[in-house]
Amino acid sequence: MTNGGQRPHDPVTEHPQPEFPQQDQPVPGWTGPMDPPPDHGEESYRGHGLLTDRKAVVTGGDSGIGRAVALAYAREGADVLFSHLESEEEDARETVRLIEEAGRKAVAVVCDIREEEQCRQLVDRAVAEFERIDILVNNAAYQMSQPDGIGSISTEQFDRVVRTNLYGMFWLSKMSLPFMPKGGCIINSASVQAYKPSPHLLDYAMTKGAIVTFTQGLAQMVAQDGIRVNAVAPGPVWTPLIPATLPDTAEFGKQSPLGRPAQPAEMAPCYVFLASPQASYITAEIVNATGGTPLP
């Protein structure tokens, strides 16, 4: 889906491999300074009309997995509203450009999903722009590495991680469902951390485990309404969150069996498939895209 029907590529060498240059950014991180630059599918993703005229909401769509999903959805024929933080305006403008270049409507909304009222305003804006929400992708997330253990996780950090990763997902799902027609879907971003938690990401991993449970429970709750709920659990992915929140980027992703991190473009097809009619019998599932790390 992402290579335009070209010959298969070696998944080990297709994208950059560690070691990467050591790099640090302030939170939340930006795409421009990253070395190597992330691949969102700008040159590789080819659409096949799988989401023609669908209306999608993607949180954290300015960069990383969110941008790759927004780009892929647009090239599949969907209009996309996405959220971003105020400090991410530059990245957001590039996502808008990519969506519009695909011939679809792009709406960028400044929204801190830690705040219930801002989540409500995001949904209201989506309904005003699109009249309905066919696809909700709860993707925005926050993490911060604490190698010194639980004693170094402040209440402020814990609150930010939980409110970003769980509260926002809960509010947006709850608020979007009344505007979601039969055939709609919710797709949540979980993580390999839900199953194989890294000690230095304890609070983040905890929330990703909760996302798996939320996904499976909500899917059963809304199945009779014709709504599907699934999640994608990526392994290490090269996004701005990495240089902004991890102390060592040089060997990021090297621990995966493929020996490298994923590029955001490699995650997008999972989100496309789960949103498409081809996945009509798939709900309460977690699609693991971990680069070979076995999961339960």
Score class of each variant (00 low, 15 high):
Phe273Ser: 09
Ala102Met: 02
Pro247His: 14
Gln146Thr: 15
Asp112Ile: 08
Gln263Arg: 13
Glu266Leu: 01
Ile242Gly: 10
Asp134Pro: 04
Gly149Gln: 10
Pro26Arg: 13
His40Tyr: 15
Ala74Glu: 09
Arg7Leu: 14
Ser173Gly: 09
Ser152Asp: 15
Ser152Gly: 13
Thr31His: 05
Trp30Ile: 00
Ser63Phe: 08
Lys182Cys: 07
Pro18Phe: 03
Leu122Ile: 08
Phe158Gln: 01
Ala140Leu: 02
Pro178Trp: 10
His48Lys: 10
Ser256Arg: 12
Thr239Glu: 09
Thr207Arg: 11
Tyr281Asn: 11
Val107Leu: 11
Pro16Phe: 07
Pro247Ile: 10
Gln25Glu: 15
Tyr204Val: 06
Arg114Asp: 10
Cys185Ile: 05
Gln220Glu: 13
Gly151Cys: 08
Asp124Gly: 06
Val107Arg: 14
Tyr271Val: 02
His15Phe: 14
Tyr281Leu: 15
Pro21Phe: 10
Ala140His: 06
Ala289Asn: 04
Asn138Leu: 01
Lys105Glu: 14
Gly32Trp: 02
Met206Gln: 07
Leu295Arg: 14
Leu218Ile: 03
Gly77Lys: 01
Leu246Lys: 12
Ser191Lys: 04
Glu19Ile: 03
Glu117Arg: 13
Leu241Glu: 08
Glu129Met: 00
Glu115Arg: 08
Ala74Ile: 01
Arg125Trp: 00
Phe214Cys: 09
Leu177Cys: 05
Pro247Tyr: 08
Asn230Glu: 04
Ala140Met: 03
Arg67Pro: 10
Ile187Arg: 05
Ala126Asn: 07
Ala140Tyr: 08
Gly60Ile: 03
Gln216His: 12
Arg46Pro: 00
Pro38Ser: 10
Cys185Val: 10
Gln22Tyr: 07
Asp159Gly: 06
Met144Leu: 15
Val229Trp: 12
Tyr45Asn: 07
Gly209Asn: 14
Gly77Trp: 03
Ile113Cys: 03
Glu115Ser: 04
Glu42Ala: 14
Arg104Val: 01
Thr213Ser: 15
Val110Glu: 13
Thr31Leu: 01
Met180Asp: 06
Ala72Phe: 11
Cys270Gln: 05
Cys119Glu: 05
Thr52Arg: 12
Thr52Asn: 09
Ile150Tyr: 11
Thr164Gln: 08
Ala126Lys: 04
Val229Thr: 10
Asp24Ala: 13
Asp248Ala: 09
Ser173Leu: 03
Leu172Pro: 02
Glu86Pro: 00
Ala126Thr: 06
